[in-house]
């Protein structure tokens, strides 16, 4: 089938078999190596991307379902230098080790950070932990990730919401 996708701002029409997972299509057709597959059954969050702005598991989505939709992946979030404030916080708080789960966490949590900043409120630890409960990290024990979310929200609250 023919599918038109806007991926990280660029629109392209491709021909794919209907069973191809969005994760595979992003990786293979769009060369987006930041989309990782950790389980391919919806239980680890590694493959999280944004479809029309909201986090979605790209292993549970067929590319064919995304005709006309806009998709963004970790590659577009902060560029090759990973300059998004949440990425910077992952760096300073040691929110990653092997990095395999990292794009999924970042894509799941970036909107969470934005929403809390928009509300002007710092969530408690349990709320932060629940926001990432669909993502598994086997390396960090989550500690650095929780700290990174707290820092990303805190920094932006301190600066005002313009960031």
């Amino acid at each position: 089938m023919n599918v038109t996708l806007t991926v990280n701002g660029t629109q392209r029409t491709i021909t794919v078999e209907s069973r191809r997972l969005l994760a595979d299509v992003l990786r293979q057709e769009f060369n987006l190596s930041g989309v990782h597959i950790g389980c391919a059954h919806g239980a680890c969050g590694c493959c999280t991307v944004h479809v029309d702005g909201a986090p979605k598991l790209s292993c549970l989505t067929f590319a064919g379902q995304c005709d006309g939709k806009s998709i963004s992946t970790v590659e577009v979030l902060g560029g090759v230098e990973a300059e998004h404030p949440l990425q910077a916080a992952f760096r300073s708080e040691h929110g990653l080790q092997c990095g395999y789960c990292t794009p999924g966490f970042v894509m799941t949590l970036a909107p969470f950070v934005d929403d809390r900043v928009a509300e002007g409120r710092m969530p408690d630890d349990l709320e932060i932990r629940e926001a990432m409960s669909g993502n598994i990290c086997r390396c960090t024990g989550y500690h650095g990730i929780v700290a990174a979310v707290r820092k990303a929200i805190g920094d932006r609250l301190a600066k005002g919401t313009q960031a």
Binding site: S33, V74, E75, A82, F90, R91, G99
Partner: peptide, 12 residues
């Protein structure tokens, strides 16, 4: 090494 993991440019 963090930057390549955070930006999706790492190669697994």
């Amino acid at each position: 090494e963090d930057t390549r993991f955070l930006s999706g440019t790492a190669r697994y």
